[in-house]
């Protein structure tokens, strides 16, 4: 009993701590996070759809899911590079990071288009 109540209290404390720490992050990073959440959510939707309908056009399923996951991953990479607290990337211009991000996304979407049909 006590253990569970202590764990729930710990959980709540943890939750508050995370929430407060997260709110401290700058807005542009939060936008990126929102984008990531959107992508992951779409991916989950597709997985649920596939579980209902079956894997028939498997290549379309793969390309849809991988496009979402890929977008998420690339956005996370951008976030890593743009985050000012990251000491390894402090001499990387954010424009350069963004340009790389755009290039990678272009390649990703090109491949997705090819694989979709």
């Amino acid at each position: 009993m006590a253990k569970t109540s202590s764990t729930t209290k710990d959980a709540q404390d943890l939750f508050h701590a995370i929430w407060s720490a997260y709110s401290a992050t700058p807005t542009n990073l939060k936008i990126i996070d929102l984008y990531v959440v959107f992508a992951v959510f779409t991916a989950l939707l597709q997985v649920v759809y596939m579980a209902l309908v079956g894997t028939f056009p498997f290549n379309s399923f793969l390309s849809g899911v991988l496009s979402c996951v890929g977008t998420a991953v690339l956005a996370v990479c951008l976030r890593i590079q743009v985050n000012k607290e990251n000491k390894e990337f402090k001499d990387l211009a954010p424009e350069r990071a963004f340009a790389d991000f755009v290039l990678c996304n272009l390649v990703l979407h090109l491949v997705i288009m090819n694989f979709l049909g």
Binding site: P57, T71, H109, I112
Partner: peptide, 24 residues
């Protein structure tokens, strides 16, 4: 049967556009 996947892929591309505009 694959229209949702097409939709998802295109929505990703649209999201990318919107996001990059916002980010820039």
């Amino acid at each position: 049967a694959a229209y949702p996947y097409y939709g998802a892929a295109f929505s990703m591309m649209a999201g990318f556009f919107v996001f990059s505009a916002v980010h820039l």
